[in-house]
């Protein structure tokens, strides 16, 4: 098997890029989850330890990270439903590209609802 060329000649269309995005987001969420269960486990150490670590989640840099995490989840979740519709719905494969734009639309709407609320909590100076 020859190695892939530097760069690539493969120009997949939307279907390929949505697959790449699904893979990248799933991978990122998994590693967040490993860390997340570890930091939550500090409730078994002491209230002080838990509060100290969760306190770092409230600074603006982490706040933006949380926004990114939520964006990753929302895309992965909606696109996951699209993948299932392609697999199980008889007309799914025919509408896979339309459904990707539906996913993008729902993503924009969800984030438009979430972001102002979250950023106000993070930057609102509580």
């Amino acid at each position: 098997m020859p190695d892939a060329p530097a760069g690539t000649l493969y120009r997949g269309r939307e279907g390929m890029w949505s697959w790449v995005a699904h893979r990248v987001t799933g991978f990122l969420i998994f590693f967040f989850l490993l860390v997340h269960v570890l930091d939550t486990s500090l409730v078994r150490v002491s209230p002080e330890a838990y509060n100290a670590v969760i306190g770092t989640y409230k600074n603006p840099v982490m706040g933006l990270g949380e926004a990114g995490l939520v964006a990753a989840i929302v895309f992965h979740a909606f696109n996951g439903i699209r993948v299932m519709l392609v697999d199980f719905w008889s007309k799914g494969p025919r509408y896979q590209r339309v459904m990707l734009w539906v996913v993008v639309g729902l993503f924009v709407v969800t984030m438009a609802g979430f972001l102002p609320r979250h950023l106000m909590n993070v930057f609102g100076g509580h």
Binding site: V43, Y50, N51, I54, Y57, K58, R117, N121
Partner: peptide, 17 residues
Amino acid sequence: NLIDGDGINAIDFGFVA
């Protein structure tokens, strides 16, 4: 945990309890 109430600011040991 992020939207209801004060969102992320409300989370501490008491919240989890």
